[in-house]
Nucleic acid binder design. Structure first.
Lengths: 211, 211
DNA sequence: TCGAAACTGAACCAATCGGTTTAAACTGAG
DNA sequence: CTCAGTTTAAACCGATTGGTTCAGTTTCGA
């Protein structure tokens, strides 16, 4: 019906249910882990027959890695949050801390983290993929900003990577542990603000220029 | 043969192979997780028949929780490292950082952490047990020291729990992530010292008294 | 409207799972 | 030695696993 030529659709590979399958795989794998997930469950969750599943993926392992890769790259784009490279550190850090905490406390991040950690020796590439798309990427962004801030004389830093890692770690303080061990899953603004303020203040106490 | 009365031996419960069984359970569970571990594997690893296994534990789940509890309490005693409560912060922090890093980078801690995280929603008590025996216990110890240091006027801290958490987090910077995702498992003294010095310097920049 | 490709549901397979049973062998105190 | 309690190996159970097959239905571009 469309006069304009159909765009070739980036890699439908075989059929039209590819994403549907991966969605089902994500749901079950993130809930039960690799061994705990049964292929029948995945087919049911995907709303697809088992034969269709196996027409897309030769076996369960490849189903898992495909799903993990997709979720890691999604996480990567979520981590690519905009940083105003020209704003002063106190502002940028506070803002970045808030976003970072919101991410690491999210149900999604928790689940994919658990699976990646649990299966990282069954799937050696998996840990690397998560690391690259999450912590490493975030560190690079923060370090970039810190470099520019130093050029403006706003901070005094020698080891930018270490500083960026330290800031990210400061943002986790207790919150992350409580979440990942299932002790707490809702956090009040007060709890979060306490950690944010603590992280920013400590970080600037070390690296900030007294103005 | 012993004239002195036999001490009643704390809870041999049934037989003499209790520890042997738990050792086998640990080996397999920590390697493969709960679902990934087969009872036959555990029996083989324990050097014990499957019937014996089931004479100690009514099912696989209880076998797992018993093993997890034992390992958590072992971890707890490992965390109970001696802190010289009278020494100055720069010294104590450096020393504590070194020990803490050595612990969190150890193969044992990595494995039990993975299992606890992975199975913490299948076994809700598990996450709490790990948290209590590890992070929470360590924080309490550090906070205790910081309180005494403040009494001596060596540090300026209001929120001791937050400060302790921050210090512990600073010690992880990157090292821990690289280890837990299987990217790196041997760390040079230089890598570790860089993080230790960074943690101590940043922490004291915020909380230390200029003397 | 036609036909190939995609999809379905269910039956089916061998293997493995957690767990039980049994009859025989081992252990150690009295 | 005796005897009760432990331990053993192996056979066994029903359920579930990852994976295959196939005859039939749906989908959709030409």
């Amino acid at each position: 019906m469309n006069i304009i030529a159909e765009q070739p659709r980036a890699k439908p590979r075989k059929g039209r249910k590819y994403d549907q399958v991966l969605d089902g795989a994500r749901e079950v794998f993130l809930l039960s882990g690799f061994e705990g997930a049964s292929v029948d469950d995945i087919a049911r969750a995907a709303g697809v027959s088992k034969a269709t599943l196996y027409s897309y993926f030769p076996d369960k392992r490849l189903m898992f890695t495909a799903m993990a890769e997709r979720e890691c790259s999604r996480q990567a784009s979520a981590a690519l949050q905009v940083i105003d490279m020209t704003a002063p550190p106190a502002l940028v850090l506070r803002q970045t801390a808030g976003r970072l905490i919101r991410i690491i406390l999210s149900d999604f991040s928790q689940r994919i983290f658990r699976v990646c950690v649990a299966e990282s020796d069954r799937f050696p590439e998996l840990g690397q993929a998560f690391y690259d798309s999450g912590p490493a990427l975030g560190r690079a962004r923060i370090a970039d900003y810190l470099r520019q801030a130093k050029a403006r004389g706003e901070v005094a830093i020698e080891d930018f990577e270490l500083a960026a890692d330290q800031f990210a770690e400061l943002c986790k303080a207790d919150l992350w542990a409580r979440a990942v061990f299932g002790i707490q899953n809702r956090f009040s603004d007060e709890e979060i603000d306490r950690v944010i303020e603590g992280a920013v203040t400590t970080f600037l106490a070390r690296y900030g220029m007294r103005d």
